[in-house]
């Protein structure tokens, strides 16, 4: 199957891809793998018992990347996929995922990606996941990603998720367990508008000595959209963690942030902060004094905030 112009545009939006990426990749379109490449150090193979792939990264692999974008360009379709990532000891890699939905019709288009990561001892991985939806019709664009992360001793995972406009309904579930000296940095950026709804449940367990985690969300809710954040940080060891939710609320939107920290060890150190507010008036005024219209000023402030 060939990729058409629409596919290429979606790929650009969700994975910054202009043409075929360097390194390993797997492109999935309407529930099927259309193109794939493994490399000497990174093997991608189909799962035998269910839809999805196994991505096996050899120990010690460095400065390599894997792109695994998903495109959904059909109405009335539910695509469920299970991907497993085995990130070998002491490797250092970048994984770019992402899902672009173009729903041409009336019925919903839905992608549920279940991703599980085993970040082995001393490995380091940056995982970027972008979501984007569009379509002329009333058909809903729905994404329900589930991410399960195991950060082993001394390993590090950077998890970045971005969803700016276009996705009508998202329920994101993320759970992570971080072993001793392991580190997890998670940032979530979200913009909802119209009548969209986004829910994000994050649970991070710090189970080893000197494990650490930082969970940060930045979001903007416009029009009548709704957002709910429930980040939970649990420490059962002498570990450190911080949660921060920072949101800009506009129009008639609703946002709830419910950070929870829970310590089960006397040496655990956990903190949280959450803030919801409108765009500061003096920021708007400042940009307007540079000649920007109010609309341009708002866009500039939001773009910066979500960068």
């Amino acid at each position: 199957m060939k990729l058409d112009a629409l596919d290429k545009r979606l790929l650009e939006t969700i994975a910054d891809l202009h043409g075929v990426p360097a390194g390993a990749f797997n492109i999935r379109r309407n529930g099927q793998a259309v193109e794939r490449r493994s490399t000497a150090n990174i093997e991608i193979r189909s799962k035998e018992d269910k839809p999805g792939i196994d991505v096996l990264i050899r120990p010690g692999t460095r400065n390599e990347s894997v792109h695994i974008p998903v495109i959904l360009a059909a109405s009335g379709m539910t695509d469920v996929v299970y991907n497993t990532f085995e990130i070998g000891e002491d490797s250092d890699v970048l994984i770019v995922a992402g899902c672009g939905i173009h729903n041409p019709g009336e019925a919903e288009a839905r992608h549920d990606g279940i991703h599980e990561f085993f970040v082995r001892r001393g490995a380091r991985v940056r995982y970027v996941e972008k979501h984007y939806g569009e379509g002329p019709g009333p058909g809903a664009r729905i994404l329900n990603p589930q991410t399960i992360v195991h950060v082993e001793e001394g390993a590090e995972m950077i998890l970045e998720t971005v969803q700016i406009r276009g996705v009508d309904d998202t329920q994101r579930v993320t759970s992570a367990r971080v072993a001793s000296r392991g580190r997890l940095f998670m940032t979530e950026r979200l913009l909802t508008h119209g009548t969209q709804r986004a829910i994000s449940d994050v649970t991070v367990e710090l189970i080893g000595e000197e494990a650490s985690a930082e969970v940060i969300s930045r979001s903007v809710a416009q029009d009548e959209s709704e957002q709910l954040f429930r980040p939970r940080l649990i420490a059962t060891a002498p570990a450190r963690g911080h949660v921060a939710c920072d949101s800009i609320i506009m129009d008639r939107a609703r946002i709830s942030s419910v950070p929870e920290i829970s310590a089960r060890h006397p040496e655990a150190e956990l903190t949280h902060e959450a803030a919801i507010g409108k765009i500061a008036g003096d920021q708007l005024i400042k940009l307007m004094t540079l000649g920007l219209t109010e609309k341009e000023a708002i866009e500039t402030i939001l773009r910066g905030f979500l960068r």
């Binding site: 920072d246 500061a280 920021q283 400042k286 920007l292 500039t300 773009r303 910066g304 905030f305």
Partner: peptide, 14 residues
Amino acid sequence: PRFKGLRVRDLLEL
């Protein structure tokens, strides 16, 4: 005023 996320170069470019 201060801005979250806006870099010095962004402001100067504007």
